[in-house]
Nucleic acid binder design. Structure first.
Lengths: 183, 183
DNA sequence: AGATGATTATATCGCCGCGATACATCCGAA
DNA sequence: TTCGGATGTATCGCGGCGATATAATCATCT
């Protein structure tokens, strides 16, 4: 997940960890955080795996006389680009889970149209399932359920209903564009 | 988190892991899952910590001639009950984060009224912050932002706005009840 | 000029929880 | 009768979090 997001962001420009985290926060702030406690170890791992590489960052070094490396600026390697494309193209069942879906959607512009569609439809199915579960829970219990739990379920139901409507619009739009491309 | 939920559920009746998981799914299904991969290790840990204890489950054993223990039924210990009350009473800043908030709210009936209020207000503040962040992101970028990201932000903004309204209602209701109790 | 606090920046540690996987029983339906 | 689906417990590796440490830079107030 973090890996996908980092690859996506570095696709635009080389960046250091702190900057990545800020951009991540703006890009995904609606539904995902990512702490430094995951970011820095992930950068290390990706570097070891050869997906990203540390830039010499010459200008930065020239400015600093005390010889201490203040920033680690990373750039995508060729393998990193490959990996990114691969991750975007292979949409699996976990792709439509809460946390992953948003990250994938944030990079839809770089995702093939058919994969976009698969993800949107998969997500819709997933949210519809949850919606039905909530409907059942609300219907089943009737009066005997705890009132706060019911309030929680009611809110959840409304949210899922709204998300399904939202997804329907997105899917319709995608289909319209597909038609435009074809005909 | 899981610990809190388990303590809350076992407060009603002794249960085995599988049953706990099902109840968990119904109770928190709107926003939280909890897999067996977390459940069973957590039960072990809680047992070691003395928060829960394994029941003899006599009826179950009598049924089974092959001598194999099929179910591990757990019950709350006195310490477990203490711990539960403690966890409910001590509402901290992480209590209003996405995942924790729902779990806490699911046990509001057992939570002191003043703590309920603190949690609801804390949550509201938290969601308002996110809402402002999303508004800023949407305003700032104007046209240059990626269209899918914008769609994501739009959806996020609507959700946060709705949740704030929902919380306002809940808070108002709590206040009304507080007045009823006082006057 | 000096203090002070916010921001920038990297890093690690222990813990929580997830997904995959394994294994075994029980039950109903084809 | 076999076979899939529920019931039931368990473990492993890893992704990610929150807390925490450290330190330089920059703006602001006095």
């Amino acid at each position: 997940m973090l890996e996908l997001a980092i690859l996506g962001l570095l696709h635009e420009a080389p960046m250091h960890g702190y900057e990545l985290r800020k951009r991540l926060h703006i890009l995904l702030g609606a539904f995902r955080a990512f702490s430094y406690g995951s970011l820095y170890p992930t950068l290390r791992r990706m570097q070891r795996a050869g997906l990203i590489a540390e830039e010499a960052d010459v200008a930065e070094l020239a400015d600093r006389t005390w010889g201490r490396r203040a920033r680690r600026v990373y750039r995508l390697t060729a393998e990193g680009k490959e990996r990114f494309a691969e991750l975007l193209a292979n949409a699996g069942p976990q792709t439509w889970e809460d946390d992953r879906f948003g990250v994938h959607m944030a990079f839809f512009s770089r995702t093939p149209a058919d994969v976009r569609m698969r993800i949107l439809e998969g997500r819709r199915r997933r949210v519809e399932e949850r919606r039905e579960g909530l409907r059942a829970a609300l219907a089943r219990a009737g009066e005997q359920i705890d009132r706060y739990t019911r309030e929680l379920h009611r809110m959840g139901l409304e949210s899922t209903e709204r998300e399904v409507r939202w997804l329907n619009e997105l899917i319709a739009r995608e289909q319209a564009e597909q038609r435009d491309r074809d005909g």
